[in-house]
């Protein structure tokens, strides 16, 4: 245990290995905790009632067509209240006020940072 052996890969291979490990570990977690521990161990607890499927919306009355509220409106409302100037800029400059624009801006920002890091490293 005294010495460390580093596994050196190239960046593209590492992305593939990391994704593969993520899927492998996710599968192990799913099989061990859900399929084995829950389904196998608690088979006897399973009730046949269909009432459990109706447990939704914290016991409130609901209409099937309007069961959910638009997430994007919650998001844009928070951004409008907290950052009125930037929200106005995104709304006017970015074209629309829809949610995807905000995520596009965030991705553009992250990409710029990564490119800056690569450029300054002399790549």
């Amino acid at each position: 245990m005294g010495c460390i052996e580093v596994i050196v890969l190239d960046t593209a291979t590492l992305v593939l290995v990391a994704t593969g490990l993520m899927i492998f570990l996710g599968f192990v977690v799913y099989m061990a905790f859900y399929e084995f521990l829950n389904k196998f161990y608690t088979r006897k607890l399973r009730s046949t009632s269909r009432l459990k499927e109706e447990v939704v919306m914290c016991g409130l009355e609901y209409d099937e067509d309007e069961i959910s509220i638009p997430v994007s409106r919650v998001f844009t409302d928070i951004m409008r209240r907290s950052l009125p100037r930037i929200h106005y800029g995104v709304e006017k400059g970015g074209g629309t006020r829809i949610l995807n624009d905000w995520f596009t801006w965030m991705l553009v920002f992250l990409t710029i940072m990564v490119i800056l890091a690569l450029v300054y490293s002399g790549w």
């Binding site: 914290c58 959910s68 509220i69 638009p70 997430v71 919650v74 998001f75 928070i78 949610l99 965030m106």
Partner: peptide, 21 residues
């Protein structure tokens, strides 16, 4: 689907867009 879940996701998205950069 749930109004409280939708509120939670809207808030979580706002947190991600603000915190992640």
């Amino acid at each position: 689907p749930n109004p409280y879940t939708s509120l939670g996701i809207g808030r979580y998205m706002a947190l991600l867009v603000s915190g992640e950069p």
